[in-house]
Amino acid sequence: MTATTPSRANRVPDPTPSFWVIKVLTTGMGEALSDFLVTRFDPAPTVLVTAVLFVAVLAVQLAATRYVPWLYWAAVSMVGVFGTMIADVTHVALGVPYLVSAPVFLLALVAVFVLWRRTEGTLDVHLITSRRRHSFYWAAVVATFATGTAAGDLLASTFHLGYAVAGLVFVALMALVVLLRTTAVLGPIMAFWTAYVLTRPVGASFADWIAVPHARGGLDAGTGLVSAVLTVAIATAVAWTSQYHRATRNSAVE
């Protein structure tokens, strides 16, 4: 069997079960680590340093011509951390309510999808084989994180559902997406991107619930502990997928 040439290889992972597990872990880690950093250090330089790291990691990912598990998930993790900081700055520092930011971020996501679809003719994540499609993909990823973050905080804070209940609401919505996909009501592309948005508030809501103090409706485990545990879990899961991906690629070459 002839292997796919690197220039035409897909540059992002297929949405397997392990993909969704790691995705949820990164959203929770991003939420917890962001909160830990901005409460332990001066927020302004912390956000600036995180922004530099985010841009650097994303630039390396965009330069990749094939899917590299460690690199891809490092980029997703940085989106989670930096995206949380930006969402917090938008709400806390600028005073933009979640009822405003959530629809605005959603419109930005729709705009990315419309431009991507008109330019490339498809939003299929199995066909991210060019630099331009790769760029559209990451623009969509950033927009989904912003949308999901604002939606999660909207339910938990503005609507006063609390983190645990908000998390369960989004889990229920995820289950609905799976049902609609299973019954072919939703196509694979729509189902993927809908689920991608929903995984952000699922992971972030439960991470907040475990980490925040009892006075805020949480279990008071602390953002430091939660971010550390989730980082180890992500590293373990990515190590396993890296080994599997390497074995699969070697088998394809033979």
Rank of each mutant, 00 (worst) to 15 (best):
M1E: 11
T2Y: 12
T5V: 15
R8Y: 14
R8V: 15
R11L: 11
P15Y: 14
P15I: 15
T16S: 14
K23C: 08
G28P: 13
A32H: 01
L33H: 04
F41K: 07
D42L: 12
P43Y: 07
P45D: 08
L48C: 02
A51M: 14
A63Y: 13
R66T: 15
Y72K: 04
A75D: 06
M78A: 14
G80T: 09
M85I: 09
V89P: 12
T90P: 10
L99S: 11
V100P: 04
A102D: 01
V104L: 09
V104M: 04
V104E: 00
L106K: 03
L107K: 08
L107H: 09
A111F: 14
V112R: 00
V114G: 04
R118E: 10
E120F: 06
L123M: 12
V125E: 05
V125Y: 01
S130P: 12
S135A: 14
A139Q: 07
V141T: 10
T144R: 02
F145M: 05
F145Q: 03
G152E: 01
G152H: 00
D153E: 10
L155E: 00
A156S: 10
A156F: 00
T158V: 08
T158H: 07
L161H: 06
L161Q: 08
Y163I: 02
A166W: 00
G167S: 09
G167N: 07
V169S: 04
F170M: 11
F170R: 06
V171T: 07
V171I: 14
L173Y: 06
L173Q: 07
V177Q: 01
L179P: 02
T182H: 13
G187P: 02
I189G: 06
I189A: 13
A191P: 01
A195R: 02
V197M: 09
V197F: 12
V197K: 02
P201N: 09
V202A: 06
V202H: 05
G203M: 05
G203Q: 02
G203V: 03
D208A: 12
W209Q: 05
A211Q: 09
V212Q: 07
P213G: 12
R216G: 02
G217V: 10
D220W: 00
A221I: 04
G224K: 01
A228F: 13
V232W: 15
I234H: 06
A235W: 07
V238S: 01
A239D: 01
W240G: 02
A247K: 13
A252I: 12
A252S: 13
E254W: 05
E254M: 10
